[in-house]
Every structure is written in structure tokens, then in C-alpha cells.
Design a protein around this nucleic acid. Structure first.
Lengths: 248, 248
DNA sequence: TCCCTTAATTGAGCCAGATCATTTTAGTGC
DNA sequence: GCACTAAAATGATCTGGCTCAATTAAGGGA
């Protein structure tokens, strides 16, 4: 009972019923850019979405593919990755329920600028880009909300640029762990557990470093009792110390 | 006549008249997010803007200052810089006429996330954030246009992250020069001349490197007859070769 | 319970680029 | 034309983090 080790992460797997049509309306309300709408408006919008679910490691779309849909995460986690010629991947974002992804801008050729890969089993709502565009015109409130979210993402993207050019890898990883804990952290026996599968490579691709270096740093953090970690999971024991390292 | 050397850059200085009220309407039309509006709508919007001009090296606002206005460049160039504790600056963007800056998002505390410094003498139009917000609600077309621009900026910000994590400094600088040439390039006797004062430090802050390294790379490019450069100016002689270096 | 796969760790050598310290030069003002 | 100043170039040294190469171990499957 005490002996056998298993991943401390919760089970993300879902049957088709979890992504059922009945739940869509409820889920849509959780999406930040629809929160201001009233019941009728939301019901109307609901018609235009369709639901799908994907298993872990599936790819929803590839970078440079023709972009036609805009999607919203309802359950699970999705990662946005950009593959480079050099074979190095850049992990741009890790999305949680309520976040949108896909291409927004109509200017230029409409292709996805990154690959969307499923990190756990997920449920996704999708809408045709063209429908979404007219929806933006019909509901200014939605357009403004989407703009706010996009502006926030631009902010955090620029923050990342700052980190990449000025901080050491150790500080960058500390920052990333703190940020992930705000998004995916959940109290557990392993401390503040990041509720998503997260490998050293994922971490390295987020920090712009090699998985070996990420591994060395994580080992160091573990030796200093700042984190607890295993295969594909990370628990944070001392978030304060981590935050200190990030900004010292 | 032939002997005396002066900067090949054009004179950006302007009298107050250049930023006159009479010209505002004309300038506003140039702003991408107002292009779809008809004459009456534009006239109405025009009321809400006020004009100002600043001399080179002035700071329009500082990072972390309370954000109240949204601004648009009408004449000249403005740079957005983030200062870091380590004393290193990060040059996030170099704006040309028609581009907006300031804080868009209302979520969170409304402070500027970067410092806006004037690169040449400039003319700037500004509007109160609150007025702009209601303008977005009144004119969905504008909201959608602003969203498009913001989404594009997010894209290019992510592109920069990719470059920072995967490319060498030389390739990054080549990319930056190509990008700047698209934005500020102008045919001249010095080749495709970048029409703005641009120091080695500016370049370094854009590429996330030191000014010494930027200098070494620029010297190399000049030796290979790819560029012509002097104090604060850069002319591109062989844009194709530069593009090749960037993407090889 | 053991086995197997793949993630993670660890070691050693190396290099791009940072840093520090000068020297040189472009371009302006007089 | 001359002198002055800040930008740019250049040299020398040092190091964080990458790369290559094994080795170790976590944890799921049967």
C-alpha cells in the first residue's frame, strides 16, 4: 500500500460523455470573453460551436497548416509549440481550461503559427474563424474582451523576452515554475503540485535551454528541498524560496 | 563640397506647425485601425484626440507609471524599452507613424509596462484610455482592427522569442536589420538607408546582446560589403545576402 | 513481482558571447 | 580647419550553458 509508486497527478482521461453537448453551455460561460453576455446571447453563440475530445499526445493542428478554426480548452491542458529548423522546440504557452488558441488575425495568410499538442486528455470547443469574426462584429463586448486577453498575452510574451535576454537559466526556470504554480498548482501531499504532465524537455523548451541543463537545475532545487519531482511531475515545497531565486 | 561628412539621415526636426490641428484628421486616417471608418465617424473621433510633439531623447512616459493615455505616432520614431534591474535594457519595439502605443488592457493595474522614448523629433496624438475604451464599444470595426494589430504584435513577439532561443547573435542581428529595412528603409546613395538614428546599443538591446558584440558583427558585415554604417546610421548594400545570413 | 521503456541524471570538454579595458574615429560645433 | 565628445572598434580573458556520451532509475504493463 505504502510502497508502490505511481504518478501523483490526477487522472485526466475522460469518456465521450464528459464532452457532451449538454455541458457546452455551462463550459462556454467559463470562457473569459463570454462572461459579460446574457443568457440569450450565450445560447445563440453556443449553436456555432462544436465539441471534440482528444487523447494525450495527439496533435490538434500543425504549424503552417491552413488556419480555419478558433478553439477553446474546456478540460485538460494544451501546449503550443513552435518547431524550428535546428530541431529545437520552443514551448510558447501551456493552456488551461477557458483559454483560446488558434489564429485570430485575418491579416496576411491565415496559417497557424504554432503546433497545438495535447498534454493530457482534453475537451475542446471550436468555431469557424469566419463565424467568430462576425460574432466579434455583432458583440462589441466580446471583441473588447478578446482584445484584453490578447493584450495580456502580448504583455507576458514581452516579459518572457526580457527574461530570456537578462536572466540566467536558473532564474528563468524559477520564474516558470512560479508561473505554472499559479496556473496549474493544487495542494497535495507533495506540496503545491503542478497538475499536468511536465517533462524536463517541456521545461527546457519553455526556458530556452537544453533538457540537460534543466535537469541539473531541477536536481539542485530538489537537493535544497525547494521542490519534489519525479517523472513528468513537479511538486513545489517552498514557493517563497523559489520566488526569491527568481527575482534576486 | 565632397569632403565634409555629415549623417546621411534626413532631418526629423519639426516646428509646432507640423503637428498642427489642421493636419490631425488627415493623419488619423493613416492609422490602420481607423481606415474602415467613414468621414463622419472619423470627424467625431478626431475630437477626442489631442496632439503633442516631443524632441529627440525625451521620454514620453516611464515604465510602471500609471497608464492613462493611448497614443499614436504621427511623425518620427518612438522606441519602447524595458529597463531591467541588472542595468540592461531591452528594446521591445521601434514604432513608425501610424502605430499605437501605451497600455490597452484594463485588466490588472493600469501601468505602462515599458518606457516610451523618442528616437527622433516626433508628433504624437493621444486619447484618454477611458475614451478609447468606449470608442471600442461604439465602433466594433475599430475594436476588431485593434485586435488584429495586437494579434500581429503577439505573433512577432513570439517570433522574437523563437529567435532568441534558437539563433546565434549574428543571425538575430541580420533578421533585425532586414525587419528594420522593411519598416524604415529608404533608397539613398548609401544603399537602403534605415531612416532613423540607430546606435550599436539600440541594436544590441534589440538582439539581446552586448554592444561590443553588436559592433563586432556590424564590422564584419561592413567588411563583407553587406552594409555601410557610421555613427547612428546604417545603410544596407546587399539586402539579399543579409536575408540569407538570417535564415541559413 | 519483475521487466521494459523512456525520462532523468551526471560527467567532461568546449565555445559563443559576456565583460573589462583601451584605443580609434565619426561627426558636430566653433 | 581644428578641437572636442561620445560612439564605435578592438583586444584579451573568462565563463555559463551547450553538446556529446554514458549511466541510472521511475513507474507503467502484464
Amino acid at each position: 500500500m505504502a510502497g508502490r509508486k505511481t504518478t501523483p497527478l490526477k487522472d485526466f482521461s475522460l469518456g465521450t460523455h464528459r464532452c457532451s453537448v449538454d455541458l457546452r453551455l455551462e463550459k462556454l460561460r467559463l470562457v473569459p470573453f463570454f462572461t459579460d453576455l446574457d443568457e440569450d446571447e450565450l445560447t445563440a453563440i453556443n449553436q456555432q460551436f462544436s465539441a471534440a475530445h482528444h487523447h494525450a499526445d495527439e496533435t490538434i493542428y500543425y504549424q503552417d497548416e491552413r488556419a480555419t478554426m478558433l478553439r477553446v480548452v474546456v478540460h485538460g491542458a494544451v501546449k503550443l509549440v513552435r518547431h524550428t529548423m535546428e530541431g529545437k522546440d520552443v514551448l510558447l504557452d501551456m493552456l488551461q481550461p477557458g483559454e483560446y488558441f488558434g489564429n485570430l488575425s485575418t491579416s496576411g495568410k491565415a496559417v497557424y503559427s504554432e503546433t497545438a499538442r495535447v498534454q493530457t486528455d482534453v475537451c475542446i470547443l471550436s468555431i469557424r474563424m469566419s463565424d467568430f469574426r462576425s460574432l466579434l462584429n455583432d458583440y462589441p463586448k466580446v471583441a473588447v474582451a478578446v482584445l484584453d486577453i490578447t493584450a495580456d498575452r502580448l504583455q507576458s510574451s514581452r516579459k518572457k523576452i526580457r527574461h530570456l535576454t537578462t536572466l540566467t537559466v536558473k532564474k528563468r526556470i524559477a520564474h516558470i515554475l512560479v508561473m505554472l504554480s499559479e496556473k496549474f498548482g493544487e495542494q497535495s501531499t507533495h506540496g503545491l503540485l503542478l497538475q499536468l504532465p511536465l517533462s524536463r524537455k517541456d521545461l527546457a523548451d519553455m526556458a530556452g535551454t537544453s533538457s540537460e541543463t534543466a535537469s541539473r537545475i531541477m536536481s539542485d532545487f530538489q537537493d535544497r528541498d525547494i521542490i519534489k519531482t519525479g517523472r513528468q511531475w513537479v511538486g513545489i515545497s517552498d514557493i517563497d524560496r523559489l520566488a526569491d531565486i527568481a527575482k534576486e
